[in-house]
Design a protein around this nucleic acid. Sequence first.
DNA 1: ACAACGATCAACT
DNA 2: GTTGATCGTTGTC
Length: 209
Amino acid sequence: MRLVREDETGRREARIVELEAYGGPEDLASHARFGSTTRNRVMAGPPGIAYVYLVYGMYDCLNVVTEPDGRPSAVLIRAVEPLVGIERMRADRLTVDRRRRAARTGPGAAAAKRRLDATPDHRLATGPGLVAAAFGVDTAWTGIDLCDPGGPLRLERDPAAPLDTVSPERIAVGPRVGVAYAGEDWAGRPWRFSIAGHRSVSRPNPGSG
DNA sequence: ACAACGATCAACT
DNA sequence: GTTGATCGTTGTC
């Protein structure tokens, strides 16, 4: 599927190339393990809704609620390949990089700009925090319907390809990133999926089976 | 009320 | 391979 943001200022579009699945209360790596809370309450609602949260006090992460109403679950979008509106993605990336260096002016901001200028288009959104940054999405977007064809942020089917275009052997499968705290059982589950060898994937993913 | 901790990223060595 | 930045959420007192 493609991630699209469209409003009066323009259109951004990118191919989703990497994601992770997070299950119900029994999944010790999922925010659903806390039960329903103020932050995660949309996880237990109907599917197709955006769940955006802040990690490490710095980065926003965009999730799509998946299973039916009443079963808390979501898929984290970890990386996308920019296709349309790339300059706007760069502009919003810089805003976020600057927030990270909020206390600094001059050298810090200039260095961030130089790094971004040196980043090729296909590496603009190679990580969940970078996906949200490139699309200008933050926690205020939680709850919006990603399946509304007229919505400002939405999922669209690739116009040139049906859903099952990526054959199973082209999908790399591996453990989810950054969830060691969940214990071996849950951290070890192969619930991270990416397009094998795709240059916009956040980092190498073992086991392309 | 308060302390601890992340579904990260980039700059270090 | 290691570490700092930075703050809302969660669990404890």
